[in-house]
Design a protein around this nucleic acid. Structure first.
Lengths: 247, 247
DNA sequence: CGAGCACTTGATCGCTTTCAATAGCTGTGG
DNA sequence: CCACAGCTATTGAAAGCGATCAAGTGCTCG
């Protein structure tokens, strides 16, 4: 059974991202209306979901997997400008063409809504627009946080920042208790990390090796990471260590 | 007469930012409700409007002047994460404490709304929430555009990008026709430009001198800039030169 | 076993930062 | 009126960090 088939006829009430996605605030009847315009699509790792500049005829939510938003200059330099995780929203209501490439970083399943009916629903059901506003404000905060990383942090701090973000997010999903050490799989290649952080993949590799040598992290394999002391990692990231652990 | 007094009893219907601000879509009766919770405040250049972490008891719109959002690390490194121009919205409904410092870059007048009544209105009057969503999506686009600048552009390209953004915005306000050359005043110090671009002020100064030497720009004074050929500037910025001039 | 891919490591280069000196401007007070 | 402080901006020289160029490793899959 393919990943897509696994979700193909899923009822919204059984949806794993139901409570965090754009539909989180919807009432039963509103969900039913959404179900009438929704369909699932799956993508393989590496596949481009939407090309920058192309017309968009759907919006939707990431159900499982990870996607990235990237911008590319004419000479090929690329910068990732967003990392889309399960429950994150894709697309921009009220805009014709996609401003960025959307690429599946891992195998991915999306819950898509036809764009026009969705836009209509945004007007008639405030619950959707309200939730979308919340999510957009959160994304704006994340983008601004990332501007500090891109503009002012050293390579080492950039890597530590990325690791701490992934670790925190992973912890909030899986192990809820803050045990001593955190273990997770990196969902990104070195190149994708470089594109996210405004570095080269060589520098990413070197800094990961350095953090490993300094025992800030441990590598079980190239993608499997253990963080023995989260506080230490956050110091390396240059972040305020006073802040609450799970933000 | 102070700048503030100039606006003190201004009726919304005469407001210069009426058609672009968060209240743009409001009907007459909705405007009247807004007027009952609004008040004007003015700030001098350099003054901090809101300190990061402080509780916010108002939200509002920039009426005139320029403000900036900045983030600062413990060791003093700072990154500007937003530039607020007339009609831009300040504050985040539904959040208690300010995530960033808001600083008046020039003398400034704000139209403030008491936070709680404004949040109530957001629920009852969809026009406000809808407009705020639009504006937030636009800000998110701008933030992502800036992530490319911060992450992948050279110092020279960064300066050219900033100048072209200010020039474009200025052109869209003042001279509507795209005459050959564009003239404007830089509303930012070299240091503020550096904080925006993730550079040092020395590098900003050097790159401006270089662009001047190469006749991409002309300086009447240190802050008064002429751009003889907008297309040339956008090439220097590494931007797609095919894109429409006034976006 | 060899091709392909993700990753690591080394050596060198060059851009931006850092440190430092100086210029230009404005406002203040003797 | 001029001297001087304080601020913004410019310019120079040197240092450092990350990029670039180049091998080489380890793993998976045909």
């Amino acid at each position: 059974m393919t990943l897509k088939a696994q979700f193909d006829h899923t009822n919204c009430s059984e949806c794993p991202i139901r409570h965090r996605a754009v539909c989180a605030h919807c009432e039963r009847d509103e969900l039913e209306e959404l179900e009438s315009i929704k369909y699932y699509r799956s993508f393989e790792a590496g596949q481009t979901i939407i090309w920058s500049g192309d017309p968009m005829n759907f919006v939707g939510s990431v159900v499982s997997g990870i996607a990235s938003l990237t911008q590319t200059m004419e000479d090929g330099r690329t910068q990732m400008v967003g990392l889309l995780l399960p429950s994150d929203f894709v697309g921009r209501p009220g805009r014709e063409n996609a401003p960025y490439d959307v690429v599946a970083t891992t195998d991915l399943v999306m819950c898509c809504f036809r764009k026009k009916p969705f836009e209509d629903m945004m007007v008639t059901t405030p619950h959707i627009a309200q939730r979308l506003l919340q999510m957009t404000l959160d994304e704006l905060d994340a983008a601004r946080e990332w501007m500090l990383v891109l503009g002012r942090k050293t390579a080492r701090e950039k890597i530590a920042s990325l690791l701490s973000i992934i670790a925190r997010r992973d912890a909030s999903l899986h192990q809820s208790g803050q045990t001593g050490s955190i273990i997770f799989d990196l969902p990104l290649t070195r190149e994708a990390m470089a594109d996210y952080l405004g570095l080269t993949l060589e520098t990413v590799s070197r800094q990961i090796s350095a953090l490993k040598k300094d025992k800030v992290i441990t590598l079980e394999s190239k993608r499997h990471i253990t963080i023995p002391d989260m506080r230490r990692l956050m110091e390396e990231a240059g972040d305020d260590t006073d802040g609450g652990f799970l933000v």
